[in-house]
Amino acid sequence: MRFSFQDYISIKIHKTDLLLTSLIKTRLEPFNLAPEQNLIMMLLWEKDGLSQHQLIEPLEKDKTNIARMASNLEKKGFIKRVHCKDDRRSVRLYLTPAGRNLGEQVIPVTEEFNQLVSKGLTEDELRELERILAKINDNVRPEF
């Protein structure tokens, strides 16, 4: 049996991802913050001083991507990268005053965005969605 275009779950997920990314990009643009950079900032607003290595797992990015995004955030003046004295290969990221101030502006935007995305969904539906997405991620995650 051959699927039609509308039958592919991957296409449906991709369309949703494009809509979500486009909307959050528009909402973050006034703050000079890209959606992926915002993910790093959100983690730092929760816990300042994380190492670049500690960002790899929650963001599912390789160390090169993390380093590039951190460099761009540093150039914008939102974070400061500090090499650890004990291990020069390890780099910790710290919010600057501008980065902390940015959080006061951006966190409400991301919370409003999350409310919009989950509008009309029950707690049970959100848990089910998380379960289904985790299953899909496991299906397509490369095995190393």
Rank of each mutant, 00 (worst) to 15 (best):
T21Y: 13
D7A: 15
I56Q: 03
Y8R: 14
L73P: 06
D48P: 08
D17Y: 11
L121F: 13
G77K: 08
L39M: 10
L59F: 03
P142Y: 10
A70Y: 01
Q37C: 03
I132G: 03
K75Y: 05
L20F: 10
E57N: 11
M1S: 12
F3A: 14
N32W: 09
L59K: 04
D86S: 11
M42S: 13
T21I: 11
L44D: 01
T21H: 11
N38P: 02
N32E: 11
A98P: 01
Y8N: 13
E104T: 04
F5A: 14
K85W: 01
F113A: 02
N32M: 08
V117K: 08
V106T: 03
V91H: 00
E36R: 12
L73M: 10
T64E: 00
W45P: 04
L39N: 07
V140A: 08
H14G: 10
N137P: 02
S71A: 10
D17Q: 13
S118H: 11
L73C: 07
R88P: 00
L102M: 07
E29C: 07
N65L: 01
N72Q: 14
D17T: 10
F113D: 00
F113Q: 02
Q54E: 13
C84L: 08
P30N: 13
M1T: 11
E29G: 06
R81V: 01
S4T: 12
A98K: 15
I132K: 15
G99D: 04
D48F: 09
T16R: 14
E104A: 05
E130N: 13
P30W: 10
L93A: 06
A98G: 02
I79C: 08
N139Y: 14
T110K: 05
E74A: 14
H83L: 04
D87L: 01
E123C: 07
V82E: 09
P142E: 12
R88N: 00
N72K: 14
K76C: 03
R127D: 07
S118F: 05
M1D: 10
I24Q: 07
Q105E: 04
K12V: 13
V140S: 07
H53G: 01
V140E: 09
V140K: 13
L50G: 02
N114S: 12
D124H: 06
G49Q: 06
K80L: 11
Y8T: 05
F113E: 01
I132N: 06
G77E: 09
Q54D: 11
L93K: 01
K47S: 11
Q37A: 07
N137Y: 10
E74L: 08
Q115P: 00
K135R: 12
T122F: 06
G120P: 03
S51P: 00
V140N: 05
R92Y: 03
I40K: 06
N32I: 08
E60S: 11
S51L: 01
I132Y: 10
A34G: 04
L126H: 04
L129R: 15
L126D: 03
N139Q: 15
I24D: 02
N38D: 12
P142L: 13
S22R: 15
A98W: 06
I136L: 14
G77T: 10
S90L: 11
L59Q: 03
F31C: 04
R92P: 00
L28D: 07
L95K: 07
P30F: 13
F31G: 05
S71C: 04
I40W: 04
I132P: 01
K135W: 13
I56N: 00
E125I: 12
R27G: 05
E57Q: 14
N38I: 05
L39E: 09
L129W: 10
K119D: 05
R81Q: 12
G99H: 08
